[in-house]
Design a protein around this nucleic acid. Structure first.
Lengths: 213, 213, 213, 213
DNA sequence: TATGAATGAGGATTCATTCAT
DNA sequence: CATGAATGAATCCTCATTCAT
């Protein structure tokens, strides 16, 4: 069994309940660190967060961090992947609802970005040259593809006559671009930025939907 | 007088040719530093370039750099603004040509990004939380608006019936998003990425153009 | 009963075969760790080998290592003493052979050093300031004296007219010095170094032998 | 011009007294650091001395250390080379004196080692696997050869009939071995060790001298 | 006795910035 | 104005050892 982000979670056969328990504890601890980091990132740019801060926030020692993560970058990547799982889940939930238009999906995504700027910052960081191990790159790309797949489903569902893969690439790009362009709109507070970016997402969704026909 | 990027260039009255000369020298030196930095950034991620490296590349001392720039960030910002002037000039040149479709403009922009990844990286850096002085933010936003204006002209020219400002916001976002999404497409070299991103830009341009009508 | 290296092995009276068995297991385990460490040291400088590596190589846990050794230094010392036992055994075997000249003995010793650089490195480490418990120092010196004794026998056998103890001190020193001086002879591979050091050992042996008369 | 240890000391033409002055200051500062380190090494094993300690002892900042040395290893190496220059000078001075027998030279050398245990410890460290840059290895070997040359002169002077190079190799080895074997003679204080090692050096010198004939 | 996760002091090194010359 | 040596806080990461299970 593999979780979406590629973390290996060893299946525990009933014969080894002890090990299973340990694994649970391990997962819990890892989660603890992860969440502490996420909360920290909400307060300040993730690139300026130190191991010491994360350790303190998680209530563990520095060394423990390194028991769970090879290095800081791997932790950052895990935070990113965890966030990505969240948005995937959110999309998958909405998919079942009837009013699942392209525009609606765009709104969900952009709302998520507004609520999780760190996710977006990390996307920028990792996609634009942030050092990453080969395994890290692999995980990153698997995740990006997962996101793309959701979009493609929606694009196909919109009945486009064009190449759905290419169109969903373009749509995904368009959505991602909203934040890099307006996340720091001058003199606007978070609420205004949220509203503006949502409107742009809506426009983009509409444009792509309209052109499908 | 103000240059597009807001650099303050003290006007020299003809009565003081000596000072004017000095100012020229000063500009030349500043340019020297700027260009050295740009070349360096082409080789490695700008965030990992040190003052010492820039000084060596420019053939000046570290101290001199601080005579021309308050700090490293200001230098980075200037590099960004200089690049932005380049793309503005490129767009303005093309504007005169007859086949100035929206799609064509998108192509020009995305080509520029591919040739100037540092520009894009800096955009991401500054737009997503990079520390910046109030003056820096001001300069940055003036530049972003200049770019937007060019796009808006084109959008208006495309005869859209929608709110041109909003549409051009959406289009600008869409273009910017291409790079953050595909600059690290796995297993592709620069040429392939350039081709793919250009295709996406073309699609986006077409989509927005089509919907104008 | 005491082994040559001073390891305390609690005598097991026949009445307690169970405990004796346990002791055997204990010895086996200790041996396991020891050998794993020795093999590791053959690959990389012993000072850079970590407990974790030794544990992994021995197939035991870190904690187990500390059940058998007070600390890493004690383990290192034990490796050293085990090696020393090897060279003692080798010398004792050769002693019986007829052609046991001083020069021949020197050759045996230097060959051993070439094959067991870790032994020599540890000698340097412990003799030149490496922290050691009083018991450790005691063990170390007992071993050095054992080695000296073998040499002294040979010196006496060579029929020297001088103070045999002093002469054997000098000879022992001379042999030990060969490696510190030539172990890193530039641009020579192991075979060449082995050959050169052997030749020097031979010269030293001859010189001491010649002067005996 | 090159100093014995390979430090590049740029010759200053009279036309640039300013630069010459700066170079002098630089040398002085480098010397300051060097001496501080040497003194520190006299108090505790050089391997356990930290940059912070050296900086404090030298009255400079940590960063300054790195302005003069690439890294700690280079500093250690320089201390070693400086010591080596001292012993070379001492030998060269004695050379002029009439009673320059082999045995006398050996005494000078062993006295030096007793007074400069750090030198010997470093010799062991660098010769037995201590990490070193290629340039470092080069410097180290040049120094070892310089020492060897002095010995060879003396050996030749002793009128040996054997291969002088080989004999001096053997002699050098023998001397170096004295310290690794007896520097930690148990229960003896520095004075006793000094006396004992000197006696051994004398024996070795005599033995080699006697055999020359 | 075996385990191995947790610990955290401590290491070397970097680098933007200052300022005396 | 130009210089570049000095600064030192701040970084990530290691690893021997402990101890609860």
């Amino acid at each position: 069994m593999r979780t979406e982000n590629g973390t290996e979670r060893i299946d525990q056969v009933p014969e080894k309940p002890l090990t299973a328990l340990k694994q649970q504890e391990r997962d819990a601890r890892r989660r603890l660190i992860l969440d502490a980091a996420r909360h920290l990132f909400a307060e300040k740019d993730f690139r300026s967060v130190t191991v010491r801060e994360i350790a303190r926030a998680a209530g563990v020692s520095i060394g423990t961090i390194y028991n769970y993560y090879e290095n800081l970058t791997e932790l950052f990547l895990d935070v990113f992947l965890k966030s990505a799982e969240d948005i995937l889940a959110r999309i998958d939930n909405e998919e079942d609802s009837p009013h699942s238009s392209l525009s609606h999906l765009c709104g969900i995504y952009i709302d998520f970005l507004n609520e999780n700027m760190t996710f977006y910052q990390m996307m920028g960081h990792f996609m634009l040259g942030g050092e990453l191990s080969p395994e890290g790159v692999e995980k990153l790309n698997r995740m990006m593809r997962s996101l793309m797949d959701r979009l493609e489903s929606a694009v196909v569902g919109s009945g486009t006559k064009k190449n759905p893969r290419l169109v969903s690439h373009a749509l995904f790009s368009a959505l991602n671009g909203i934040m890099i362009t307006y996340a720091r709109y001058p003199g606007r507070d978070a609420a205004e930025i949220s509203r503006h970016t949502r409107r742009l997402a809506s426009i983009i969704g509409d444009v792509f939907e309209a052109c499908a026909h």
